[in-house]
């Protein structure tokens, strides 16, 4: 968990939420498909499907009800997307899961805008947000290849950290 803000889970503030926003099943995942094509262009085989979702890690004095309100009104496009709120660090499934987060010292306009949005919703509390991307790679590939994919295609280690589950 070193390369992820999740290592501060429960350490800093009293409430932690991990929110995942993913496309509904019947919508075409353009980002996933694009990445799949790029991986194949690298000469890597055995890729079935890739699903890309947005992830948010929130820490602060907010209730679960408030969290739901924020997620539904601010993060979610309810026509094309669905949402999962985790109150514990999400468990790892069978697939290769890669999370990419901006490094702490890099400005993340999406987080800043989200904080502003929360304030505009009337929730005036001390909250911290980190935004990231989650890639679920349904593939028969080993750890080294996954690392290569991360470095060459997914994350820019100059400004981002990635974590392979």
């Amino acid at each position: 968990m070193k390369n992820s803000p999740l290592h501060t889970w429960n350490k800093k503030m009293n409430k932690n939420f991990y929110i995942e926003i993913h496309l509904k099943k019947n919508f075409f995942d353009a980002f996933g498909d694009d990445l799949k094509k790029s991986i194949i262009e690298m000469g890597i085989t055995g890729i079935n499907n890739i699903y890309v979702s947005d992830i948010y890690f929130l820490q602060g004095e907010i209730s679960k009800k408030e969290m739901e309100k924020i997620a539904k009104n601010l993060f979610l496009d309810s026509i094309t997307q669905t949402l999962t709120i985790y109150t514990k660090p999400p468990e790892v499934h069978n697939k290769k899961i890669i999370e990419v987060w901006y490094k702490k010292q890099v400005s993340d306009p999406v987080s800043i805008t989200a904080l502003k949005g929360i304030k505009d919703m009337g929730i005036n509390k001390n909250i911290q947000i980190r935004c990231g991307k989650k890639y679920q790679i349904d593939a028969d590939i080993d750890k080294d290849i996954t690392e290569t994919i991360c470095k060459k295609l997914i994350a820019n280690t100059l400004i981002q950290d990635y974590r392979i589950s």
Partner: peptide, 14 residues
């Protein structure tokens, strides 16, 4: 060995 402060993410809305 380039420091990561030399690149930034834009914020067009601002």
């Amino acid at each position: 060995n380039i420091p990561n402060s030399v690149v930034q993410i834009g914020d067009p809305i601002t």
